[in-house]
Amino acid sequence: MGIVLDNLPKIEALPGGSIALATSDFLINWSRNSSMWPLTFGLACCAIEMMAAYASRFDFERMGVFPRPTPRQADVMFVAGTVAKKMADPIIRIYKQMPEPKFVIAMGGCANCGGPFYDSYAVVKGVDKIIPVDVYLPGCPPRPEALMYAVIKLQEKIRKMKVKNYHGATALQETGARKLS
């Protein structure tokens, strides 16, 4: 409890110290951002850096980021790599299979805007053309530290969410995100 009280100023300790009060928004957001489970989903080169982020040196699990193999259990999708047109439909499908609230980090130049394949006939120039994106992470490929930074940015965003506004859905999806085909 001491750590919680020190680090989370919104929890007000009652005298005696056995009960803590916090807003429901705070508690929900706190649990959400401390256990963000990404989908095990790699598309191209960036996926290798994503794997490196899970592995020994960078150890993503200490941030509560622990890969899940099925979209049904995942909170966040790292779109790590080039989105080919053939892959666009499966990505939309996987995105729809994830439960709300769900977040997307577009990892790398290709997922942001097409990257080195900006003039290719076979590449979707940016995953935001097909699904809403929360954090854009530039780099080709971004380093694992950069992916961590993206996750921290996403946590900051989650901490600002209000349950009453969006019924638990992501802000972006409620406020005029692209309609999924």
């Binding site: 790599g81 080039t82 080919a84 047109k85 892959m87 499966p90 394949f117 290719s120 076979a122």
Partner: peptide, 14 residues
């Protein structure tokens, strides 16, 4: 296959 087809061989020509 083809879920990562990026048209690389065409891009070489450009």
């Amino acid at each position: 296959v083809g879920y990562l087809h990026r048209g690389m061989e065409k891009l070489f020509e450009a």
